[in-house]
């Protein structure tokens, strides 16, 4: 029994360590074929009001970095599921989601949201006039709050992408 216990730990620990599934750099490089430009957007005025509507709270930052190449943009944000922030990456082409990735998950339960069977539901989703996602997203039992966090960040990224399309973003830096 004792040997079985230690074998189990050793075998399991070989798989991988840490809560980060994809690095920020890998997410950006996988999202673009060309090298994108890194920009930042001020989260002020209406944007924080929209954050309160979509996320239920102000986004805890003054600015947000994002990456852009042509009509494609990529956003990385943190949002709390139950207790801990989930790091979520959203790539948007035009006004539709091209990809959603979970970069890091820190909650004790609900890590299934990182798998493609869940994140692929967001592909092609845009924003409806009432600010809901156009695609229905089926949840995961026992991970309701994490599912809600990913859905809300996807909506907010779509809004920010649309918001920046017609406005000047400050602080351009080459990626």
């Amino acid at each position: 029994m004792k040997h079985l216990f230690f074998c189990f730990i050793l075998l399991s620990s070989q798989l991988c360590v840490g809560a980060e599934y994809i690095s920020e750099q890998d997410f950006i490089s996988q999202s673009f074929t060309n090298s994108p430009t890194m920009k930042s957007i001020w989260l002020k005025g209406d944007r924080q009001e929209v954050a309160k509507e979509m996320l239920g709270h102000r986004y805890p930052a003054l600015r947000l970095r994002y990456w852009m190449d042509g009509t494609k943009s990529a956003w990385i944000m943190n949002e709390i599921g139950k207790e801990k922030p989930i790091t979520i990456g959203v790539t948007i082409e035009g006004d539709k989601i091209e990809r959603v990735s979970i970069l890091a998950y820190r909650e004790s339960r609900g890590g299934e949201i990182r798998h493609p069977f869940f994140t692929e539901q967001f592909v092609g989703a845009g924003l409806k006039p009432n600010a809901d996602l156009a695609n229905p997203v089926d949840g995961i039992a026992g991970a309701t709050l994490s599912v809600r966090a990913v859905t809300n960040i996807s909506r907010f990224a779509l809004y920010l992408s649309e918001s920046t399309a017609s406005e000047f973003a400050i602080g351009q830096v080459s990626h």
Binding site: I9, S12, S13, Q14, L15, C16, V17, G18, A19, Y21, S108, G111
Partner: peptide, 11 residues
């Protein structure tokens, strides 16, 4: 106390 001793396994 939960120890996340690997990415996919906890004790």
């Amino acid at each position: 106390v939960q120890w996340d001793y690997s990415q996919s396994h906890n004790f």
